[in-house]
Computed example of a mutant assay.
Amino acid sequence: MKKSVFFGALTAAALAAGVAGAATLDDVKSRGELICGVNTGLVGFAAPDANGNWSGFDVAVCQAVAAAVLGDPSKVKYVPTTGQTRFTALGSGEVDLLARNTTWTYSRDTDLKLQFTATNYYDGQGFMVRKDSGVTSAKELDGASICIQTGTTTELNLADYFKANNMSYQPITVDSNAEGEQQFLAGACDAYTTDASGLAATRAAFANPQDYVILPEIISKEPLAPAVRQGDDQWTDIVRWTIFGLIAAEEYGVTSANIDELAKGTENPEVNRMLGTEGDLGAMLGLDKQWLVRAIKANGNYGEIFAATIGEQTPIGLARGLNAQWTQGGLLYAPPFR
């Protein structure tokens, strides 16, 4: 789930350089479809149902961008990617957008030539254990076997944490969250580590989720952000400001239920600019005035998406925490639309 840092860096960088400057917006429009790289299957974030229909928090980003650019949130092709394949898929042009719980890091931003658009989930790495193990703190995992996805920042964070606390562990490497889940449930490891949100999503899919505990320690900063290739500023701006638009819509009370009425004009100039009744911000992106109206209507504002996919009333059960609006003590903050 987390994120390859150095593995394949040169290859990904070379691939990115080969497609840098490509007019992604033109490609998407001519194709009539947005190709979005997502997780291979993480309930609440990105997972297909029995009929192959994708849904989740990350999927909503893909759909909002498709709605903004193509006028239809359903015009998306989902490409499942692993921690090992996601950056190559983006750098080679196989996908237009990577919306897959991926941490924004220095090396990915610079060495891999990725362009992170906007953090849409503030996360941190945690640990999950069986409740009957009696373990209540990560500090009690000295000597434990720990399932961990290979080629990810999770590996580096884990090594740092255990070294800093003078503890040892036995890594049990897996290639995907599905494999990690299987190994953990089979008892091949004492604990499973990845993003705390990923642990919550994984546990929710267990037959008996109450038998497993997510420990209180968060050992890293994991700002998760959709990414595009470097070299196409227009496409970067479209994805970035679509995400900011979803965040700002929640701040200003623009919802899927009232947006049609608000799009006729309001007393708030900022909302009017966002929804295209004042000025023409869409033209600056190569889009029409209603681009953000369509993006918000696709699945609602940020808060609506969060609540419907991973919020406290879902099986995932995540509280807003750091992902609350800045006005509510969180870190979500969209720059001004002007």
Rank of each mutant, 00 (worst) to 15 (best):
G8W: 04
A14P: 00
A20I: 07
A20P: 09
G21S: 08
A23M: 01
T24I: 14
D26F: 02
K29S: 02
N39T: 14
G41I: 10
L42C: 11
F45G: 09
N51C: 08
N51T: 13
N53M: 10
S55Q: 03
F57V: 11
C62M: 06
V65Q: 06
V65F: 05
L70A: 09
L70S: 05
G71Q: 07
G71H: 10
P73S: 15
K75L: 10
T81Q: 15
Q84D: 06
Q84K: 13
T88S: 15
A89S: 15
L90W: 12
L90S: 12
S92A: 15
G93Y: 14
E94H: 09
V95L: 03
R100I: 01
N101E: 02
T103E: 01
T103I: 03
S107M: 10
S107H: 07
T110R: 11
L114I: 05
N120M: 07
Q125P: 00
M128V: 13
V129G: 00
S133D: 07
S133K: 13
S133I: 10
T136W: 07
A138M: 10
D142I: 11
D142M: 13
D142C: 08
A144E: 05
S145P: 07
Q149C: 09
G151Q: 14
T152F: 05
T153A: 05
L156C: 03
L156R: 12
K163I: 04
K163W: 05
A164L: 05
N166D: 13
M167Y: 11
P171G: 11
P171N: 14
V174M: 12
D175N: 14
A178W: 04
F184S: 02
A186V: 02
A188S: 05
A191P: 01
D195V: 08
A196P: 00
A200R: 12
A205S: 15
F206K: 04
Q210H: 10
D211P: 06
S220D: 11
P226V: 08
V228H: 00
Q230A: 13
D232W: 01
Q234S: 11
D237Y: 00
V239I: 02
G253E: 04
T255E: 08
D260M: 05
E261D: 14
L262G: 01
A263F: 01
G265Y: 02
N268C: 08
N268M: 04
V271Y: 00
R273L: 03
L275I: 09
G276T: 09
L287H: 00
D288A: 08
K289V: 04
N299L: 01
N301L: 03
Y302L: 11
G311V: 12
T314N: 06
T314F: 09
R320Q: 09
L322K: 15
N323C: 12
A324K: 13
A324I: 08
G329I: 12
G330L: 08
Y333F: 08
F337G: 00
